[in-house]
């Protein structure tokens, strides 16, 4: 069930360089959203752009959800300037959710603000007591807000070596896979297209099960505009909302897709 709910801003914090986390009181969405799903935000009452701004949910607890975002344009600028107590028009929960982690080693990979849906899955696996590894990639240490802690399965990587492992997220992924039966592993990733494409190709070449959360421009977020397409590797069965089998809708069939299912993460 999709809700159009007025949420109340509870707090906003700069958790890393130009990266903000905002907590929103949104009882209906908080009670029903699943890790991996997203919401579509009207950044302000006076928003005159045509499109809402989709954001993954980074945490959910009681009546409160949070989002993590980088300020890249007008919409995210408005979000960063929300005041305590402001009401914000949300549509959600939207899209599919992370699945298939039971009784497996889950390797969670987040890059940039793609960490949001990864963090929510991380919290969920914590609650369930499932085994997991967390890998986060960024350009430099200023973009990170979690400690590098390999002993506990938490790896930070940076392109410039200023924190954690010098290199990209594939390095710790290879470490995490050492001496492990890949049949018992599943990778969950969300991040910039280039990062996800690297993870996608690696997972396919190694035969590892891997789900990826994609991002693309969305006019609606709930299956009406048909604008948010991803090309499938093989033709699929037509579903209720996807009119033909060559393309899927990121907002309805996704945002999460199996690595083998799609042609590319570059949309």
């Amino acid at each position: 069930m999709i809700f159009n709910e007025l949420a109340i801003v509870e707090s906003t914090e700069e958790i890393a360089s130009n990266t903000f986390q905002t907590f929103l009181k949104s009882p209906k969405i908080a009670a029903s959203i699943k890790p991996g799903q997203f919401i579509n935000i009207l950044p302000s009452e006076y928003w005159d752009k045509m499109m809402r701004r989709p954001m993954s949910v980074a945490s959910q607890k009681d009546e409160v959800i949070s989002i993590i975002y980088k300020v890249v344009g007008e919409g995210t600028e408005l979000m960063q300037n929300w005041s305590l107590g402001d009401s914000v028009d949300l549509i959600g929960p939207l899209g599919n959710f992370w699945d298939g982690y039971a009784d497996k080693l889950s390797i969670l990979i987040g890059g940039g603000v793609g960490i949001a849906p990864i963090l929510n899955l991380h919290n969920h696996l914590d609650e369930l007591g499932e085994e997991k590894v967390l890998i986060m990639g960024a350009r430099n240490s200023s973009e990170h807000f979690i400690d590098h802690n390999p002993e506990n399965g938490v790896y930070m990587t940076t392109d410039d070596g200023s924190l954690g492992i010098h290199g990209n997220v594939l390095e710790p992924l290879k470490i995490a896979l050492e001496n492990i039966d890949i049949q018992n592993v599943k990778v969950f990733a969300c991040g910039p297209p280039a990062m996800m494409e690297a993870v996608r190709q690696y997972s396919i070449s190694e035969g590892i099960e891997c789900d990826l959360a994609l991002e693309t421009l969305m006019a609606c977020g709930f299956g009406i505009c048909q604008g948010c397409t991803v090309e499938f590797e093989k033709k699929q069965k037509t579903t209720e909302h996807s009119y033909r089998n060559r393309f899927g809708l990121v907002c309805m069939d996704g945002p999460i897709f199996e690595s083998k299912e799609i042609k590319s993460c570059h949309l």
């Binding site: 693309t216 421009l217 006019a219 048909q226 948010c228 397409t229 037509t238 009119y243 393309f247 949309l267």
Partner: peptide, 27 residues
């Protein structure tokens, strides 16, 4: 007949509007 529609990208945001080229995707 069913139509799978045009390849992505199909939409773009513009000043006070949007561009679309869905290509009549329908069942």
């Amino acid at each position: 007949h069913p139509r799978e529609g045009n390849p992505p990208p199909r939409i773009a945001e513009t000043s006070s509007g949007m561009l679309n080229s869905i290509g009549l995707a329908n069942v």
